[in-house]
């Protein structure tokens, strides 16, 4: 099976355009049988975390372990908590780009990126475009990247408020059955994992907060649609959503 190494973004984009799938940590793609031809994007130099003044940029191939320890991300509590709690055995391999590009509902880095209103810089042979991370999730294991596009980096706008992340799995070291991130900086933003087919912002719940907890809970339950699966039943996931909402609000002092 074919495997190429890209040394520039252009080279990666060209191969992706020709049907190659990008691979960085490989922790998701290597579990799929017959992944097809792969282009290794680990050597492009996209594993940075840097201060851009009005935002922090996280390169797509920065690993979860890098994010966990980055001093630049200290203000982004929700993201670093998610990184700390990431499945331990793969956190030195798994990259934030892969975690988002896979577009799975339980991706732990997704809810934090959503509450920080992060943007993704997408690169292709025709140039770059910037989209909101939220718009990248097209469906379960289906991202909104166009043919020939790869994620180059994420831009997290300056943030100096409070934030928190909390997940519940079946055990301490498990995929999220339900996860939630919250941020407060002027406005309150709430995002969830495993509450719909893709990670989502809970905008109705955010709005309803001003009318009290009851209203926020109701709004949250009506805008999420968690699924019944082997890992958890829908009603339990809904129970967790409201439990996590209360806990997250408490943690950020609301």
């Amino acid at each position: 099976m074919e495997y190429r190494y890209a040394s520039t973004i252009e080279e990666a984009c060209r191969l992706v355009e020709n049907g190659f799938s990008p691979i960085a940590g490989g922790t998701e793609i290597n579990l799929k049988h017959g992944a097809g031809p792969l282009v290794d994007i680990d050597g492009i130099g996209m594993n940075y975390i840097e201060d851009r003044g009005d935002s922090i940029a996280i390169g797509a191939t920065a690993t979860i372990a890098q994010i966990e320890r980055s001093s630049l991300l200290r203000e982004y509590n929700a993201l670093t908590i998610a990184a700390v709690g990431f499945t331990q055995s793969v956190k030195h391999l798994a990259t934030i780009g892969g975690n988002i590009a896979e577009s799975v509902a339980s991706a732990d880095t997704a809810p934090p990126l959503l509450v920080f209103d992060a943007e993704a810089v997408l690169a292709s042979l025709t140039g770059e475009r910037i989209v909101r991370v939220e718009s990248l999730f097209a469906g379960l294991r289906k991202n909104a990247l166009r043919r020939g596009e790869i994620i180059k980096e994420f831009l997290l706008p300056r943030f100096d408020g409070r934030s928190y992340f909390r997940k519940v799995g079946r055990t301490e070291d498990d995929l999220a059955v339900t996860s939630m991130a919250i941020s407060v900086s002027g406005d309150v933003r709430i995002a969830l994992g495993s509450a719909a087919s893709v990670p989502m912002r809970a905008r109705n719940a955010e709005k309803a907060l001003s009318s009290g907890m009851g209203a926020a809970r109701d709004a949250l339950l009506s805008e999420t649609s968690p699924r019944d699966s082997m890992r958890a039943a829908r009603d339990y996931r809904e129970r967790l959503e409201t439990a996590l909402l209360e806990e997250c609000l408490r943690e950020v002092g609301l």
Binding site: Y3, G26, D42, G43, S89, V90, L93
Partner: peptide, 21 residues
């Protein structure tokens, strides 16, 4: 688990080509 560039990673879900260099 192996150490890849000094960091512990699970080698069962890595492909051979990822080790290159």
């Amino acid at each position: 688990t192996i150490l890849l560039d000094g960091k512990p990673v699970t080698s069962c879900i890595m492909v051979a080509a990822q080790a290159n260099g």
